[in-house]
Amino acid sequence: MIELKNINKSYKDKSVYSDFNFNIESNKITAILGESGSGKTTLLNMIAGITDYTGEIKNKPKKVSFVFQNAVLIPSLTVLENIKLVVPDISDEEIISELMKMGLNSVYNFYPKSLSGGMARRVAIIRAMLFNGDVMLLDEPFSSLDISLKSYLIRKIKEYQKESGKTVIFVTHDIGEALSLADRIAVISDGKIIKDVKSVKKDTEKELFDTLMSLGEYE
């Protein structure tokens, strides 16, 4: 279990987290749901060790598979080289096979500028899966993707988690995404967990919707 204890984080004068406490269960998919600027990405960055903070994160993962919001592929490297950069020991055949599984046939020698947003996102997810980190972190992985691709990727991530048994944490502002992927959903606002749904039930959607409505998210 990853335990965040008494976390404080601020950017210049703006406090994002103040005395924040949160536990993330291992081997499950946890969704962090919240409006823009609520500190969702900062939470992932703190777990990944990208940003500094005060407080303590117990059982902080040493190796993190991160799917960044905008894919972040190296423009001067082909798809194959991008994956090999972070997973150097893997064979080309294995990468190509993984790409094909994700519906990315014959793009292995493409440069990122030739990929669509959805393709780049899928490459970033494959890279993160093959990196085989202790934890997988996904920052708004489905934003601006069409519905069919979104549901396809949700299925793939679920399969990955089931097969690997890894801890997956993803942030989103979309209730539907959270409901279809997560085992647990935590709603975050102004650096505080205001709702924690530990098991998704029939009325969870309404509960989450009411919570976000009270924040003015869907006004």
Binding site: I50, K63, F68, V72, I74, L77, L85, V86, P88
Partner: peptide
């Protein structure tokens, strides 16, 4: 940040990125 997160070595970062 991506390279740091995925533990890309300094040598590889200079040479390949």
């Amino acid at each position: 940040i991506m390279c740091k997160t995925f533990n890309v070595g300094k040598g590889d970062f200079i040479k390949k990125v």
